[in-house]
Amino acid sequence: MRTPAQNARLALLLEVAGTPKPGNVDRRRDLADLRFEHFLAGTVGAETGLEMAQHGDQVGDAFERAIEGMAAQGGGNTQFGALLLLVPLVRTAADHDRLSPSVVESVAEGTTVADAAGFYRAFDHVDVFVDDPPADMEPLDVRRGSEAVPAIEKRELTLLEVMDRSVPGDDVAREWVTGFERSFAAADQLVEAEGPATDRAASIFLSLLAERPDTLVTNRHSQEVAREVSDRAASLVERDALETDPDAVESFADDLIEHGINPGTTADVTAAGLYIALERGELEI
């Protein structure tokens, strides 16, 4: 039987191996400076941090260590957002017989100022794309990394409160304040789907992208671009194109890669859904 930390690493591997995942690295597609192998190495590097979460370390410390290890490869940021979802899920799974939104909420609500500091220190290890904060929030700009920790401590912000301040512009943060709503829904869809786990991951990714514009695409490009991408995904899902017209999905994937459109937040939620299904024993590998 796999441990919670092992299931988290498996979820990361299954997510990146699923194909096609339009706009994202998968086993058939690389980005200009970010390759499939970087994601494999990032998963290996995250091992210690995930095991810290499993063994009861503070969420912030475990997350920082996972990011430090993940970043020890040549591609840069591979799974920052996914690990921000997986670390609290692993921490929850270690203490409860079954993952549920309510128990994950209790872990999020129990985070501290020290956890928020660990989250900020994680930005010292890797460059992460984030939008510019409002002028009055500049002292809390996550890109300042550990330099922003005194401001966090002065305002006594917990990690959950930091996540709450990032909504609605960041759908990874949104998961934290909604009981991982989309992650659990994705897990349910994965269980109901058919075929190998990697095919299911690709299918759920496309469904999630169709359901809600990706916030990373919004922040890097615009709301209009994100909506257009979501609408195109919805059209493919509506006609079950993965089964009836797989070439159309492949073409969509290639087009997003060509135009530098990367729905990375959707991939993060897909990884979290995979983890929940694996940890519950509902997705057998």
Score class of each variant (00 low, 15 high):
N7E: 09
R143L: 15
A94G: 02
A271I: 05
L13V: 11
P20E: 07
E279Q: 15
S183M: 08
R220V: 02
I67S: 13
V104P: 05
G56W: 11
A197G: 02
F180D: 04
E224S: 13
F39D: 06
F39T: 05
L89Q: 04
E224V: 14
F123P: 03
Q58L: 13
T78F: 09
D188L: 03
D171L: 06
D33F: 14
S100M: 11
T215W: 11
L85N: 09
G81S: 12
R65P: 00
N7G: 03
D124A: 14
Q58A: 15
K21D: 02
Q223I: 01
R35L: 07
A135P: 00
V177A: 02
D115F: 05
I261K: 05
G69I: 11
A72I: 01
L83Y: 07
V128C: 14
A53P: 03
I257V: 15
D214E: 10
R200I: 05
R91A: 15
N24Y: 01
E224Q: 15
L190K: 06
A82T: 03
E109Q: 13
E175G: 01
P246L: 10
A187D: 05
T19H: 13
L83G: 05
L40Y: 10
A114T: 12
Q58D: 14
P213L: 03
L256Q: 08
T266Q: 09
V128Q: 14
R182H: 09
E284T: 15
D231N: 13
A272V: 08
D231Y: 03
P4F: 04
R35Q: 14
L216H: 11
P101Y: 05
E15A: 12
V142F: 04
A197Y: 02
S230T: 00
D57Q: 12
V107M: 02
N77T: 13
T48D: 12
V167C: 00
A82V: 08
G23S: 10
A248M: 09
L190A: 08
L140V: 09
M163N: 00
E156I: 00
A114I: 01
R174F: 02
R28Y: 15
H55F: 13
R91K: 11
V237H: 07
D171I: 05
A53Y: 04
N24T: 03
R174Y: 04
E194G: 14
L242I: 00
D131M: 07
E258N: 12
A234E: 13
A93F: 01
P134F: 02
V128A: 15
P168W: 04
P213N: 01
L206R: 08
D95H: 14
E181Y: 11
Q58W: 08
D97L: 07
Q6Y: 03
T19A: 15
V172C: 06
